[in-house]
């Protein structure tokens, strides 16, 4: 039905479609205790991909410090996704991105998405797409001319997610242990 398509398109154009099961806002220092487990969960998932991504024993403390510093940093974007309705006030997702200079390349400023994590129950409902769109907008507002996503090379879910949305590999990082 064309009228439904039109209203769906209109809804998508708004910053938070009414169907979206989350509310997205900049993270506050008070969110840190609820964001830490999400960030650690994401890092533990990365462990699956490579032994060089083994999570350290002090990961929780590190997560706390990284989040604290990033929330205070004007060159970082830290977003908290809250549930809606009965899950209001429950943090269900996290975005962490930073602005970096590019001394040799144009555009001269890049926005790098370092972490996107969403609790499983909120996946496959278009939330990830929405988080990416909002994060990209926030990075652009901070001057980024290019958006880059970083994730483990073996993470095919992330690969597919970004490829579907126009991303392509531009820099490869390879590693070996010493």
């Amino acid at each position: 039905m064309p009228s439904n398509d039109a209203s769906a398109a209109a809804a998508a154009a708004r910053s938070e479609p009414p169907s979206m099961p989350i509310h997205l806002r900049p993270a506050q220092p008070a969110d840190i205790p609820t964001l830490v487990p999400l960030l650690v969960r994401l890092k533990r998932l990365n462990e699956e991909f490579d032994p060089l991504l083994r999570v350290r024993d002090d990961a929780e403390g590190q997560a706390r410090e990284v989040l604290k510093a990033s929330i205070a940093d004007p060159k970082a974007v830290v977003l908290a996704a809250e549930g809606v309705g009965a899950d209001k006030d429950k943090v269900v997702g996290l975005v962490l991105a930073v602005i970096r200079e590019r001394p040799f390349y144009a555009p001269a400023v890049e926005g790098v998405i370092l972490e996107i994590y969403l609790l499983p129950l909120y996946r496959r409902r278009g939330v990830g797409e929405f988080l990416l769109r909002e994060t990209t907008a926030a990075l652009k507002a901070k001057g980024a001319g290019v958006v880059i996503a970083e994730f483990p090379a073996q993470n095919e879910i992330a690969s597919r997610f970004y490829a579907k949305r126009g991303f392509r590999p531009i820099i490869v990082r390879q590693a070996r242990s010493l």
Binding site: R44, P120, L121, R123
Partner: peptide, 22 residues
Amino acid sequence: HADRPDLDELELHNPWKFRLAL
């Protein structure tokens, strides 16, 4: 269930079971 800690791993290795968990 969707809050089980092994769900991230399931999404990677067994998306069919993951979907049912959700």
